[in-house]
Write a protein that binds this DNA or RNA. Structure first.
Length: 193
DNA sequence: CATGGGATTGACT
DNA sequence: GTCAATCCCATGC
């Protein structure tokens, strides 16, 4: 198989599995929006059964999207400043999603530099708020299908099949911090700080 | 209806 | 190391 052929787009069925599996398997896949894309190097899983998840208190107006069908996007505003991008996992009616926390920039690097107001490759997508700014993902992209909409995820390319994935505890939360639900591409220089 | 906090970032001491 | 920005939304009266 040649890596010159782009990897297939992930369908909704990829996300119709336990959210922790989905989070781990998204490492090495490619997030694409228009001319910009990057390799996913850091993710976190969130599930309605633990208190750090927005779905913990049921389908409130904000968390409603989390209970939608697998493969639906969940975008919300953090600290009144940053849009954070998630993809809903598990069957419809279960509140669970994977937060994308960092990418290794691939295409459209100049566009990312302009949107971010930063030049360093390591400053473009190395955080959940940074990658949405670099890829121009905002609240208007909440609740759309990752399998058919303008934002897509491509399967892990052959060259990355041997990628080593590390697990650790989630970052930036105060509840359920003991769960090892953060996944990273081992030794990637593009992880969040 | 009023209030408080947050799955972050960047600037500054 | 500290801290403000900025606003949606969950909660409580």
């Amino acid at each position: 198989m040649s890596d010159c052929v782009s990897a297939p787009r992930l369908g909704a069925e990829f996300f119709d599995r336990p959210v922790v599996e989905v989070a781990r398997d998204l490492i090495g896949c490619t997030l694409v929006h228009g001319p910009t894309s990057g390799t996913i190097v850091e993710t976190e899983a969130y599930h309605q059964s633990e208190a750090a998840c927005h779905a913990y208190r049921g389908p409130t107006p904000r968390a409603r999207t989390l209970f939608d069908s697998p493969g639906t996007t969940y975008v919300y505003l953090s600290y009144g400043v940053h849009s954070l991008f998630n993809v809903v996992a598990e069957r419809e009616g279960t509140g669970a999603a994977v937060l994308l926390r960092a990418l290794a920039p691939l295409d459209g690097v100049q566009t990312m530099r302009r949107r971010r107001g930063r030049n360093g490759l390591g400053e473009l997508c190395s955080g959940p708020g940074k990658l949405t700014q670099a890829l121009a993902i905002g609240l208007k992209h909440n609740g759309i299908g990752i399998a058919t909409g303008p934002i897509s995820i491509l399967a892990r390319p052959g060259a990355l099949q041997g990628l080593r994935v590390a697990e650790s505890r989630r970052i930036g939360i105060s509840l359920a911090t003991e769960l090892p639900w953060r996944f990273t591409a081992a030794e990637s220089p593009f992880l969040s700080k």
